[in-house]
Design a protein around this nucleic acid. Structure first.
Lengths: 109, 109
DNA sequence: GCCATAGTGTCTACATTGTAGACTACTATT
DNA sequence: AATAGTAGTCTACAATGTAGACACTATGGC
């Protein structure tokens, strides 16, 4: 199993961090679009959220008690301790990968 | 198509950078193991090298003229201009992803 | 009441990337 | 010839990335 999270997973996870209490499907999609600077499909995000939840890196819960007012119930997501760890470790591994490499690379092709 | 190279691809590509003229299958495997701080299977590396070559990010050539002395002919790899670009862009995209995020993250779960 | 619209979540299908492990080749040594 | 050391190849499958169609609930206007 890859010990480094993929770019998309990191984007989704970091979106949760930034949105904090306001992290639910559609808001995550919007935030991830900004982070990655491109359009991201709803399915892509939900599929990733499901996988991350299956791995225990995030947890979800439907709109807490409060009455639903604007459409379907929102599903809120939050990072678990394991999620925070995985994110930190991925970042660290990536830093190590580039350590000792002057960047940006000069086109030496 | 992911605009951010995966961690393994980056490790392989960066190994080429570090090994420079001495980048061939087995030496890349050794270097990648160091970069990632874990064992990597030969098949994993060769498969990745083939894919990167198919995408035009690297190019290969068999041991240049010189007589083969220690086993099967070596296949040397080198980054193409597109490869350098892809590597730089991945790094940049990752930097942007983490921009404005204090790191390491505090376990707020 | 009925329809259009807006905001949400779900499902299916497929492409790409990550990885393991067994296997083939060639040389030098014993 | 048998063995070990260095190289590269192939197959198969798991994990991740992504698109696009679809379904549910509520509101506002006709």
């Amino acid at each position: 199993m890859a010990d480094i999270l993929g770019g998309f997973e990191q984007a989704v996870l970091l979106s949760l961090v930034k949105l904090d209490k306001e992290a639910y499907g559609r808001s995550i999609i919007r935030e991830a679009s900004i982070c990655l600077n491109r359009e991201v499909a709803a399915g892509a995000v939900y599929a990733t959220l499901d996988r991350l939840e299956a791995k225990g890196l995030i947890a979800s819960s439907l709109s807490p008690g409060t009455p639903i007012r604007d459409g379907r119930a929102r599903r809120y997501f939050r990072l678990t301790a394991a999620g925070v760890r995985a994110l930190n470790e991925s970042k660290t591994a990536l830093e190590n990968l580039w350590r000792n490499t002057r960047w940006p690379l000069k086109g030496n092709a």
